[in-house]
Structure formats: structure tokens, C-alpha cells
Amino acid sequence: MTVQQSLRLSHADAQVIDAPVDFEQALATQARRPAEQKSRGLSLTIRGLRKSFGSNEVLRGVDLHIPAGQFVAIVGQSGCGKSTLLRLIAGLDAPTVGTISFGEETRAEDIRVMFQEPRLLPWASVLSNVEVGLGTDRTSADAKARAESALTEVGLAEKRDQWPSVLSGGQKQRVALARALVSHPRVLALDEPLGALDALTRISMQQLLGRVWHDQTFTSILVTHDVSEAVALADRVLVIEDGRIAHDINVDIARPRQRGSADLAALEGSILRNLLGPGADATGL
């Protein structure tokens, strides 16, 4: 690394520290993580993974290694098994055959999941919903303070005493993100977390996700049906077809990434062609 590069990086890091919720700037701080920066994330190795529901084999042999701190997006047509893969990684279901191992010994708090639905308790305040995320530390003395700082992280500190029912869809999902992050997980599994949001809210949530991933250096696995979301956020895109990893694509585009830039669009087009067959990304007009 040249001196100039490292100077630029330290400048970028300085921006990270005082990064406000301003999304323009948040996007600008999504600089590529310097190689020597130690990631808190866990690495993940999957060997010969299969999963059947009755006679229906959903995953037919997945082998995969994810280095610590990588942001991996998993795309594929509906029913291809991508959500099943994520549920197995998150430990919500047990594999039929095969193993999933993390680089180190893990606690339950190290791996967190976020779903398409926020799954907030409607009868608990926003703050106590975030406290739920502390797992067995829920009863500790600093639980409230930790929940508050997680809420501040997602920009919702002033909503702490509200009921979830008064929040908008995007705000609910941000509370769910705070709940997932409050225990400082080392792996975050995201199952189409932005799928139910409108386009503009989705973009600002993507920026928020990118920022917290950059700041907290966890390993991130995002299942999505939105290829542009995948290439905007991920280091690597996996395309799943018929229960197998059909393509493993490195997203070698420098951060910060410019939404709508030519190289992102080109990559998105080629992934879509992989997914749907040649000519499938044409609009049909």
C-alpha cells in the first residue's frame, strides 16, 4: 500500500467516526475495508450441505467458504433454496446432511438474523424490543444503555418510548436492525430484510446496512431477490439454482459505490443474464 493510499484511507476512517445519519455521507464512507483492519466477523465453512423437506430436496450439495468480515449476497429465483440456506446458516433449521462450521466457537449472541417482517413485539416499547436482542444479557444493568446506543446507531433514539404500531415500515425494520445489532453479532444473516419496503426507503436502508457493516466489521450474508441491491452492497454475489451454487461472482468494484454507475449496471446485467438466461434482462419492449 502506498503512502498516498493509506493517507486516503485514514481520511476515510476519520469520516466514519463522525458519520451522521446523513445518507449521502454514509454512502461516501463505505470505503473498502483496509486489509490489515482486523474484522470482528466469523469465517464460515459449509461442506456437502443438503436439506430435504419430506421427499423434496431443496439444497443439493452446497460447499462454500466465507472469509471473516465478507459481505456476501445470495440471489436466485424464488424457491431456489436461498432462504433455506440462510436459515441453516443461522441455525434455525438443522441440515439433513453436511456441516456448517464457524471459524471459532460461537455463542448464540454471535449470530443474528433479520427477516423480511420486522417481528417486533407490538406490546413492548421500541426500547424494550431492542433489549430483547441482548439475549441472555437482557437482565444486565447496562441493558438499557446498550439498547439506547443501538437505537441511536440506526437513528431512532427519539422513538424509544413509542409503540411499534406507530412506526412506518422502514422505521420498524430499523428497530429490528438495532435489535439484531445490540449484541454486537459477528455474523448477521439477512433474509430479504428490505423486500417489503418502498423503493426510496429501501435505498436509505441499504446505505444504513452498508454503514453498520463497515463500522462493526461483522460477516454479512444477505438473501435478496434484488440484484441491484446485491451488487451495491456485497463483496461477492452467489447465484443459487436448483439447490446448488451456480455462480460465485466477485464484486470487484471499489467503494464507495455510485448507485447507477456503469460498472454496477454492467455487473447487474450479467448476473441477471445468469439468473434468467440470455436476453432476459431486456424489458421486452
Binding site: 443461522a90 434455525l92 448464540a108 449472541e109 443474528r112 438474523v113 427477516f115 417482517e117 417481528r119 413485539l121 406490546w123 413492548a124 430483547v132 436482542g133 439475549g135 441472555t136 435489535r179
Partner: peptide, 27 residues
């Protein structure tokens, strides 16, 4: 059931799951 699954993911034992999720939901 999604809330119950959420409670289990976040490490709630049966008694806590009942107190924080099931009972308020049934109320």
C-alpha cells in the same frame, strides 16, 4: 408463530417466552 420463533432465536426460555410473547399476544 413468527414472534415465537423470534423469541426463541433471541434465547428466551419457556417461562420468558410465555411472559413476554405468548401471554401478551393472547390477552
Amino acid at each position: 408463530p413468527q414472534l415465537i420463533e423470534m423469541g426463541r432465536i433471541y434465547g428466551m426460555r419457556n417461562s420468558e417466552l410465555f411472559r413476554r410473547v405468548i401471554f401478551p399476544g393472547a390477552l
